[in-house]
Nucleic acid binder design. Structure first.
Lengths: 202, 202
DNA sequence: AACAGCATATTGACATTGTCAACATTTTTT
DNA sequence: AAAAAATGTTGACAATGTCAATATGCTGTT
């Protein structure tokens, strides 16, 4: 006898909904996530999700936040490698960031795209995203000390570095780079340009 | 007697629809564009647009393309100022680009966001976007000659510069930068970092 | 154990939306 | 002027988000 007997109460629905929504996002983009289809996949009715999320936007926002947390933890594990120079850490950080975006394009789009706009000031999202910012801040601050360019405002440099990597991620994801072009050299060149640019301004 | 007598045939509908859609995008984002509301605003029924656009996506794609053309023409007028050094041109180009994004955030989002994804290979969009790329290509090629860094692949440098500016535009638009921060210094720092980074790699 | 209250899930209903087919009206062509 | 093409309107339908009413299972109190 199968243990899969469907009980009226799912009893673990919230995380299951988020996981399945993330899968749907990966497969068909955020627009393909439908309350009805989501319920069908999880084996639950269309209305069940409303006991766990106030509406569809809230659900997507939670999925988005989970993406930030995943990315943040990957970034943190790179940063915490104390044996690397700050420059190496900066480069590794950029690569991890870009790898996440390339591997989870639709999820990344959800995190930074217009869907997040209306609810961006929601604490959940703000905290997750701020965590990422703080990680980058620490690395760049260390980099400034290492290279003696500490007279520049760290926050500004963070925004510059973040812009570069985020922009490259966005362009790669949206396939705005011709298909036959190798992306590895572009990533390296982008990171090196930022690093050199920071150094040159010392 | 008013000349506004509503004739059955609008006789100029296509461009009017696109203009009104652009206005709606500016006011309430691309999601707020509804065939019914669009028709109401223009004084036409909901179905009328389907004589000029195969579906809603096609309409938005055309609006997107018109955005590319506008941005492209602004960029071109900056570039064609022959009295400036290539470095100055590069900087001016970045500023024009960012200004467009800041002034037309929803339109910019439409141009580069996920909406364009499914139809990105459509000739209209591809040509408009490629035009922008070509403009940037010429400036950077000139810059390479000016600074003796011509051993680098121009195309790669274009992607790097474009990423930076596009990323900054995206972050500014999505309000991922804290409100109290001045954006002018960030823009300057970003452009200068790229330029210095390019120079340093010579 | 029994019961009450709460958490959770289902279903019917409704408004909104994109889209198509059938029809209406105007313009252009023959 | 008749025919044909172009353009605009309306009714209909399916898909979707969401809410209210209802049903079902769980948990703690007595």
């Amino acid at each position: 006898m199968k243990n899969e007997k469907k009980s009226y109460h799912h009893k673990n629905l919230r995380p299951v909904l988020m996981d399945e929504a993330a899968k749907m996002i990966a497969e068909g983009g955020a627009a393909s996530v439908t309350m009805r289809e989501l319920g069908k996949r999880v084996g639950v009715s269309r209305g069940a999700a409303y006991r766990h999320f106030s509406d569809k936007d809230a659900l997507l926002m939670s999925v988005s936040a989970s993406g930030f947390e995943k990315l943040s933890s990957e970034v943190q594990s790179v940063i915490q490698n104390g044996e690397m120079s700050f420059e190496s850490r900066l480069l590794a950080l950029g690569k991890v960031y870009l790898q996440f975006a390339i591997e989870n394009p639709a999820h990344y789009r959800l995190m930074y795209g217009k869907e997040a706009l209306s609810r961006w000031n929601q604490p959940v999202l703000k905290e997750s995203a701020d965590g990422l910012f703080d990680h980058l801040y620490e690395v760049i601050k260390g980099f400034q000390g290492e290279c003696d360019i500490s007279e520049k405002d760290t926050r500004t440099l963070v925004y510059v570095a973040w812009s570069s990597v985020h922009g490259l991620a966005s362009i790669l994801i949206e396939k705005h780079i011709m298909a036959e072009v190798e992306i590895e050299p572009i990533i390296n060149e982008a990171m090196q340009t930022i690093i050199n640019g920071f150094k040159a301004a010392s």
